[in-house]
Structures are given as structure tokens and as C-alpha cells.
Write a protein that binds this DNA or RNA. Structure first.
Lengths: 169, 169
DNA sequence: GAAAATACGTCAGTCTTGTTGACATTCCAA
DNA sequence: TTGGAATGTCAACAAGACTGACGTATTTTC
């Protein structure tokens, strides 16, 4: 298959996947897949006057309860002002609590309330359901490859954040 | 490895990758990787008073020269008002041309000018370079798995759009 | 040939989410 | 103790998405 276009390394692996056309296909796959990836949570949040930014905040506060605003900033990669607007509404609506730090009173430690955890569950259930379907269809080997490529695609500092989260659990 | 958590199907494949925790890891990998994915073009566009929306339009006009506004709308999944704002600036700046359709004069056919193609090259070079690096690091088997999972993650109509583009080339 | 549907553009207004700038509070180190 | 650094908040603004309404040209349908 694909004779005439296939190159081979000394170890015999195909380099067909490195052609511009193949790369372009990967780019488009990434674009369309990300749309699917966010579609379900977006639908849920639509009615609640929340957006994707709220989802991200909720997700990472759930993963690292008691985290500080600065911590969250580094993970989300937005300005603190941007995050603050989101946090303010979440706190007002009783989904997140903000406690002044014990040792350093400048810091605010963020936690999900029961209501916050409930919404987090609802959102991540939806997202995980799609992920689970995709994983099931693709099979374990494909999933391993999927994760390998995604990780290679990250910036180095994001890779650090990703591993910090992974290893922190 | 990971004894005690591993389930096996009748065909002997591990289901460890379907754990909630594993799925959550995949979700986060997707989040961080997408940031890396868009970082390079974003940097280039920053100075030009263009944004991601312009990049997307340019990308798909390049892939399907002579496409109509309606076509683009379906692929991008935005409203015509939203797309129009972007197209207007691109046409004003001489990156895109809009020709009245020959057979159906209601349609406008969109094409990149030389300047538009030049910018497209610059943008996709940057994005492909990152993709190429990631693919090279991960290897062909991982890439195959990557694409399989991404495709399984798409909505059905996006899958159609994706294949229409692939097969149209 | 008249009416309905389609393709496209535009104006006006809203929402989310990103930005910068200015400012208050707290901590720490000189 | 005082000045700088760090943390977080408030205000104003811009990009880019959305809806709704409307106008125009063209095609299709009856």
C-alpha cells in the first residue's frame, strides 16, 4: 500500500507519515477533534451562563483542591485578571470557596463546594463518556500512541504542568 | 505492571486505559497539547492584528480554493456574521479574493491571493514543524493511533467534513 | 410570471474571555 | 522600618463568538 511514496529508515519504519500532506491531515484532525472534545461540556454550560473558562477552572480546582490563584494561573495560561472574573462568579454562585492562606495571607486557597463538585461531576462525566467511546473504538494501542503524540506536541512548560498533575495524584 | 487494576477482554486486551483516572489524563493531555498546537501560529498572527479566526479561514481556503462562503461556514462551524467580519478584513487587506459564481451568481468563490498564500505558507510551516517534531519523536505506530483516536472523538458531521477534505485532495 | 427559497452582506446589540493599567494588601529582606 | 516583590482585586477595553433583523440579488418552484 502507498507504494512509490513510502520511504524507509534503516530500522524499516515508514516515513510516509511525515509528508506535508499527512501533517496537514493531522492538523485538521486535531482541529475537528478538539471541537468534539469540548462540545459536550459546552452544551451543558450553555444554559448556566458559564463558558469554557469556568469549566477549566472547575476542572483544575477539582484536581488540586486548596490550590492558589497563582497556581491556577500557571496551569491555565491566562492573566490573573481574566481568571479572577471567572472565579468571582463561581464564588458568588457558591461553587467555589476562597480561603485566605494560613501561612501566607496574600494567597487565596480555592476549593469546590458540594455544588461545585456536583457540576464538576456532570461536566467530566460528559467529557469522559466521549473520551471513553473514542478509546474503546480505537483500542489500547491507539490510545498509547495518542498520548505519546499529544505529549510530544506540548510546550516544555506545559509538559511540566501535565506531569506535575499526573504525579500529584 | 499495574496489577490489580488491569481487566482483560476475551481477546486479551487491557482495559486499564478506560479508567476514569486514565480518561482524565487524556482530557488534560488534549488540553495542554491543543495549546501547543495553536501557539506558533498565534505568535505569528499576534503582530498582524489577525487572530485564530483568520488563520482558520486562510487554512481552509487554501485547502479548497474557490470554495463558497456557505461551504466555509459549514466547515468552520461559526455564523456567517462571524465569518464575514474575518473575510472582510482579509479581502480588504488583499489576502483573499471573492469572485461571483459563474453558474450561480449568488455564490462568492473565495481564493487566496499570492500574499494570502505566502501567509498561509508561513503559518502552516510553523504548525507543521511542531507536528513533524511530535510525529518524529512519537514514531509511526503512535501517529497511527493518534489519528485513530482523534477521528473517534469527532462528531459525525465533523467526521464527514474531515473525510470530504481528505478525499477531495 | 409570481412567489418562495437560497446565498450573501450588513447593522445593531450581547456575551464570553482574553488583554492592560491602576491599586490594595501582605510578606520579606536590606 | 522601609521599600520592593508577590498576590490578588477592580475597571475599562478589544477580539471574536452569538442572535435577530433586514436588504439584495439570484435561483427554483409552483
Amino acid at each position: 500500500m502507498a507504494e512509490g511514496h513510502t520511504q524507509n529508515t534503516s530500522s524499516g519504519q515508514s516515513l510516509l507519515y511525515l509528508t506535508d500532506e499527512q501533517l496537514r491531515q493531522g492538523i485538521e484532525a486535531m482541529f475537528f477533534a478538539y471541537r468534539g472534545f469540548t462540545a459536550d461540556p459546552d452544551r451543558i454550560l450553555e444554559g448556566l451562563s458559564y463558558g469554557r473558562a469556568h469549566h477549566r477552572a472547575i476542572h483544575f480546582i477539582h484536581c488540586a483542591p486548596g490550590t492558589t490563584v497563582n497556581n491556577l494561573l500557571a496551569i491555565l495560561g491566562v492573566t490573573k485578571q481574566s481568571l479572577n472574573r471567572v472565579l468571582r462568579t463561581l464564588i458568588e454562585d457558591g461553587l467555589v470557596t476562597s480561603h485566605v492562606g494560613r501561612s501566607d495571607k496574600r494567597e487565596r486557597h480555592l476549593t469546590l463546594t458540594e455544588a461545585g463538585e456536583a457540576l464538576e461531576q456532570q461536566l467530566s462525566d460528559a467529557q469522559r463518556a466521549r473520551m471513553r467511546d473514542a478509546y474503546r473504538k480505537a483500542g489500547p494501542d491507539a490510545v498509547a500512541g495518542f498520548k505519546t503524540v499529544l505529549e510530544a506536541m506540548m510546550d516544555d512548560d506545559m509538559k511540566r504542568a501535565y506531569h506535575a498533575l499526573r504525579d500529584g495524584r
